[in-house]
Design a protein around this nucleic acid. Sequence first.
DNA 1: CTGAAAGCGCTTACAG
DNA 2: CTGAAAGCGCTTACAG
Lengths: 330, 330
Amino acid sequence: MSDIKEVAKRANVSPSTVSRVIGGKIPVAVETKNRVLAAIAELNYRPNIIAQGLKGISTKTIGLVIPNVRSLVFPAAIRGIEDIAKKNGYVVVLCNTDEDFEQEKFYIETLRSRLVDGFIFSTARAGAQNIMELETEGFPAVLLLRQLEDCVNAVVLDNFNSAYQAVKYLISRGLRSIGLINGPLELTLYEERFAGYKKAMAEAGLALPEQAIVHGIEGGEDAYLATKDILKTGVKVDAFFATNDPKALGAMRAVKDYGLDVPNDISIMGFDNLDFAPLLDPPLTTVAQPFYEMGAKACQRLISIIEEKKNEKPQIDILAAKVIVRGSVI
Amino acid sequence: MSDIKEVAKRANVSPSTVSRVIGGKIPVAVETKNRVLAAIAELNYRPNIIAQGLKGISTKTIGLVIPNVRSLVFPAAIRGIEDIAKKNGYVVVLCNTDEDFEQEKFYIETLRSRLVDGFIFSTARAGAQNIMELETEGFPAVLLLRQLEDCVNAVVLDNFNSAYQAVKYLISRGLRSIGLINGPLELTLYEERFAGYKKAMAEAGLALPEQAIVHGIEGGEDAYLATKDILKTGVKVDAFFATNDPKALGAMRAVKDYGLDVPNDISIMGFDNLDFAPLLDPPLTTVAQPFYEMGAKACQRLISIIEEKKNEKPQIDILAAKVIVRGSVI
DNA sequence: CTGAAAGCGCTTACAG
DNA sequence: CTGAAAGCGCTTACAG
């Protein structure tokens, strides 16, 4: 790899001048500029990002902190992030924390000391000290999918309305006793989905089937067990609203295991529209989150923050979801 | 963030000495060392990786180049990679290429100039010029899942034997006319799976049902269409061996659409054991690839190459898969 | 065992 | 518009 000196020599200018044409901010005589450009091309020169970074220039890399790549909600968002990053010459470092604050801290500490220009976090939850500190110190960061008070930049889903729409749809299909398989309420998003569900039920004058409502469910397996328990109870339920697709899947299996038919005996509504949703049997009716767009938007925002440096007011983007009708609701 | 000078001042030594205790290679008087360590702790000092990188030291980051995070085979491998990376103080940059050589080139060029100490590639295929160049230049790189001649470091699956075992299992279940839904033969791994299939058939004295064998199938949708075409043909098939789970899923849907039952009319055998496999209806019998282990192993290898710098002989690790019996085979 | 100096590849005031 | 010099935060011969 050739360095800036070689380019300078070949173009017969000083390294300073080469640096100026690369930077593009400081005027350079057009004739000199062309000579430099030619030299750069001939030597296939690329500035050493590390050296630039040392000078306080950005390293053009952003840190993406998520709980786990294996969780199906992230890959699509990651694509959105990476596509935008690449378009702007950035590169992304992937960090899995397994919901562990210590690991999160580890990543923040090792990366912020210059390896990274900013962060995107999908790990926000009550008690996220590390993220808050970063934010108060003014280090560029945006939250994705998971929110944390209104004081930082974020792009999230309109969880309340999405859930509300989903349940309204269920009700419009004549379903009355609608159970809820929900995630941990310590995540704002599950609280909001719960609220949306309650609103739709209340509006329709429907009582909440308390015995068929559970929170704190983590994955498909958990949902499977919880749904079975509910069924054993003997409560009459017409439908289950599962607040994410893996939970819907678990619920569906439980219903089938119980000898009941989906959707003829019990309807199932999911949330997320993961890739596997259309492939299930029956194909899952669910709420589609615009993962790719959200990732792209978060990345775009981060990059503006990094590059403009104007401390623009923190802002929360709230995107809308959409119910996707397939075969799991009657 | 404090720098090395502050630490030096506080410990009453020169920056060189601080650097030495950090490096740990060069002897430092135990008493001085303790003073330095104390200062580091008090100031919560962390060496600036970028500055270290400038000096030719590694940046402790590795580039992971894959076709697409959204493809279900990668997330598990990524976790393996990242876990090992983290354990060794490395961080990973994620690069999606969409199977496009230009994008691959872009990433290699922007990252190798110091941002990255080495690469893991899962994008190898015929004509992978960029990877070959890197390899001949001696830049640390290891291939994962997809292979490229025997001349570079790689960790891959024993595709031949895995397919062989899968088909043998099918045959052991009394199935005779076994169709094949295969991927593009330009990928070594599909060629090998095809070979394994043929060997098992030949050993059992079974003729290949030519009309029920297709190659070049990319995803579930493709597989769905291809399987339908085969069925329309009227050939009698007892089972389909799909060389990855998404293809199996497509085949399964086609069989069901055709009014046939899985597995009673036609059995389906997949390959990969993706997370959704056990959740299908019926749960998919398939071949489990040890994705996590392969990722971990590839990362471990890369790090040894980076750190030891002994040009150890390139080596190919070939891991075994295992057939997982579930409900889609009679 | 330890310090002063040079240098990694760049950028950016400072002169001109 | 352009060059020489200083400096970003480290490491590593070179002396001692």
